[in-house]
């Protein structure tokens, strides 16, 4: 192919090692999926650790889980689902070539992602106040929650069910902070990627023929949403039915 035909047929974003935009897009999507499989393996290890320790210390896991703020957890689930929807809409508007709604959807997704992180920070701070950060991760504030006695309903104290011990509850919080922490890190990276998308979208870089970056970052964003769809019931809801027994 000589230079003239390339100018006629090639999109400005087409890399020389691809035949056409279609092939380039499919290769990119496939690459992202392979990456997401490795991500699932990575989170899978933590889900496995969670399952093993929950089977070992069921009462402690229920007690520790009941101390988490279900309202904030459910709110964050809603925020993340809405952000997945706006992300899907951003991909749609790129595919049909509408730049303004595309910019708005990307900005909304970024905003919702940051809202999620803000709520998560509030939850982490609440746990810090109640001395529930495991081990000695925070200097001067080791894991040392106050245990509630019979009839004491103080929500800041730990209400132990059955034969649960404080040491076993600490195990739950190690897993809680590892899983939600890694999830939050993925959200931070996602927010960075969305900022990049937003800038390029404002510059009008994407069009129906070239929208791979929006598509693959969308895939990543939905993946992080799926991890949270599992984290929410597994971490926040597991012992609620035992609360008033």
């Amino acid at each position: 192919m000589d230079a003239t035909t390339q100018e006629v047929h090639g999109h400005r974003a087409l890399q020389h090692h691809f035949e056409n935009m279609e092939q380039q897009r499919e290769a990119g999507t496939l690459g992202m999926w392979v990456f997401l499989v490795t991500e699932l393996m990575f989170f899978g290890g933590m889900f496995l650790a969670y399952t093993l320790y929950r089977a070992k210390f069921p009462a402690a896991f229920a007690s520790a889980s009941n101390h988490l703020d279900i309202t904030l957890g459910a709110l964050n689930t809603g925020v993340l689902i809405l952000s997945s929807f706006t992300m899907a809409m951003a991909v749609y508007f790129t595919q049909v070539g509408k730049q303004r709604p595309q910019v708005i959807c990307l900005a909304l997704t970024l905003l919702l992602g940051l809202t999620f992180l803000g709520v998560k920070a509030k939850e982490y701070h609440d746990k810090y106040e109640d001395s529930l950060i495991p081990g000695r991760l925070i200097p001067g504030r080791p894991f040392n929650p106050e245990v509630a006695h019979e009839g004491d309903h103080d929500p800041h104290k730990l209400h132990l069910l059955g034969n649960a011990t404080v040491r076993q509850v600490e195990m739950f919080y190690w897993i809680y902070f590892a899983m939600t922490g890694m999830h939050a890190l993925h959200m931070i990276i996602g927010a960075g990627l969305l900022t990049f998308l937003l800038i390029f979208s404002l510059k009008g870089r994407f069009d129906p023929e070239y929208h791979s970056p929006v598509e693959v970052i969308g895939l990543y964003w939905h993946f992080v949403d799926i991890i949270w769809i599992f984290l929410f019931p597994l971490l926040y809801l597991l012992g609620r039915h035992m609360e008033h027994v």
Binding site: I70, A74, T77, G78, I81, L82, S84, F85, A88, M89, Y92, I229, F232, P233, L237, L238, R240, H241, M242, E243, V245
Partner: peptide, 23 residues
């Protein structure tokens, strides 16, 4: 997309409600 979004919201509500029932 709108349908899926609504399904996901309903699913979240259901999972919270079901968690408080002692099955």
């Amino acid at each position: 997309y709108v349908t899926i979004f609504l399904v996901l919201l309903v699913g979240t509500a259901l999972t919270v409600l079901a968690a408080f029932v002692d099955f």
